[in-house]
Amino acid sequence: MRVELDEPKCVASGQCVMVAPEVFDQREEDGIAFLLEAEPPVEAADDVHEAVAVCPAAAIRVLNQ
């Protein structure tokens, strides 16, 4: 699984960080999310898919490899 985050679309809601903190974090200066892990382990798949579902800006997508 590969995760992509479109940072310019991010609205800094932090939903992704709350549901998948092992994959996402937020910059302190503006709250924009960034990836900690672009290719997270399979154990994180459920959390990543939930992050996709709760992102209000639809800024996250998952590519299967």
Rank of each mutant, 00 (worst) to 15 (best):
V52T: 06
A59C: 04
E50V: 11
N64V: 04
E37R: 15
I60C: 00
E4S: 08
V23W: 04
E37K: 15
F34P: 08
D30Y: 03
E37P: 01
E7V: 15
D25L: 00
Q15A: 15
E4H: 14
C55G: 06
Q26L: 13
D47G: 02
V3L: 00
V11F: 01
R2A: 01
I32Y: 13
V42Q: 11
K9D: 03
F34C: 06
C10Y: 12
A53N: 04
A45F: 04
D47V: 00
R27L: 01
V23S: 12
M1P: 07
A58C: 06
A58L: 13
E43V: 10
Q26D: 07
V62T: 11
L36M: 12
C16H: 07
C16Y: 10
V48W: 10
V19Q: 06
D25P: 01
L5M: 07
V23E: 12
V11G: 05
Q26V: 11
D47T: 01
V23I: 14
L5C: 00
G14P: 13
D25I: 01
D47M: 01
A51H: 09
V54R: 05
E4A: 11
E28Y: 12
A44M: 14
H49G: 01
K9R: 13
L35S: 13
A44P: 04
A38H: 12
E7T: 14
Q26Y: 10
A20P: 01
P40Y: 09
M18A: 14
E39V: 12
A58G: 02
A12W: 02
N64I: 02
E7Y: 09
L35M: 09
R61K: 14
V62E: 12
E28R: 14
P8R: 14
D30I: 09
M18H: 04
A20D: 06
Q65S: 10
V17H: 08
R27V: 03
L35R: 12
P40K: 08
A57T: 06
C55I: 03
I60N: 02
D6T: 02
N64P: 04
H49L: 11
I60L: 05
P41K: 07
G31E: 03
E39N: 14
G14Q: 08
V19W: 06
L36D: 14
L63V: 15
H49W: 09
E43M: 07
I60R: 07
A53M: 01
E37V: 05
A58S: 10
A12V: 06
A58R: 01
P56C: 00
Q26G: 03
V54Y: 03
K9V: 03
A38D: 15
D25Q: 11
V17P: 00
S13H: 13
I60P: 01
D46N: 03
A12E: 08
V48T: 06
L63P: 07
V62R: 06
F34N: 04
A51W: 04
A20T: 05
C10W: 14
A12L: 01
P41G: 12
V19H: 09
P8I: 08
C55P: 00
E22W: 05
A33N: 11
K9E: 05
V3W: 02
E43A: 15
A59Q: 07
D30H: 04
S13N: 10
A12D: 09
D25E: 12
V19P: 02
D25N: 12
V11W: 06
R2S: 04
A59H: 05
C10N: 03
E22L: 02
M1K: 09
E7I: 15
E37C: 09
Q65C: 03
I60T: 01
E43R: 13
